[in-house]
């Protein structure tokens, strides 16, 4: 994972820390779906809210506030990679 992807991965890990199941074991790839479970991360609205706030805090802006709803981890990473260049 490059820098941006790694940063976002760490934010996601923080977001799901309230879950009873171990947050450490979570693995993601570009194709990982953010909201579906069990085939994805299964983020619910509270976790998406926290993700939005976490991304905003780290990058100064976030897709959800901008009205964009990335579906996969890859889409989320490319939202920032695209903005960077």
């Amino acid at each position: 994972m490059d820098g941006v992807a790694e940063t976002i991965y760490q934010i996601i890990r923080q977001v799901i820390r309230y879950r009873d199941s171990e947050a450490d074991g979570v693995h993601v790839s570009d194709a990982t779906r953010l909201y579906e479970a069990p085939d994805g991360l299964g983020l619910d609205s509270l976790e998406i809210a926290a993700l939005s706030a976490g991304l905003e805090g780290r990058f100064g802006h976030d897709p959800y506030t901008a009205g964009v709803f990335p579906q996969t981890f890859g889409e989320l990473v490319s939202y920032y990679s695209a903005g960077k260049t």
Partner: peptide, 12 residues
């Protein structure tokens, strides 16, 4: 509370 696009506010 802090304004949030998903839930209106989140707890900080």
């Amino acid at each position: 509370g802090r304004p949030n696009p998903v839930t209106g506010q989140i707890v900080v």
